[in-house]
Amino acid sequence: MKARVKNIICIRCPRGCKVAIKSKNNKIQSITGNACPLGIEYAREEFIDPKRILPTTVKVINGELPLVPVKTEKGIPKDLLFEAMKEIAELEVKAPVKIGQVIIKNLIGTGVRLIATRNINRSN
């Protein structure tokens, strides 16, 4: 029987609520300190499987700019960020790239899509 309190700061919005997660035997007993429902969701996820959205860039061929910014459509497990970066580093996409275009359907087996976040035209 191990009772624990884990204090975290919710990062779902800029407000930065201090949230306390009380748990017993690795099971959440209560979540307090959040100002909105997002805090509950975040705290639960942070307790079980912390996830982060990964924003980065991908190389563009024949683009008016050399890179297109991308992001994971949802959070991916925090521990896999560097592995994801390695896979993304190998990529190249051809211009034009459209905002929202799927760059990878299943990033390192997480089931999460990597999408473009900006339009990049072909270079003239």
């Binding site: 800029p14 959205i53 924003p55 910014p69 992001k71 900006r118 339009n119």
Partner: peptide, 25 residues
């Protein structure tokens, strides 16, 4: 905004989380 590729924009204004380039778009 286009160089602020991280997420965290738009939670107040659009009620959803966007990256800088998406917010600008």
């Amino acid at each position: 905004l286009p160089q602020c590729i991280h997420n965290g924009f738009g939670l107040h204004y659009f009620r959803e989380e966007l990256t800088g380039p998406e917010y600008a778009d």
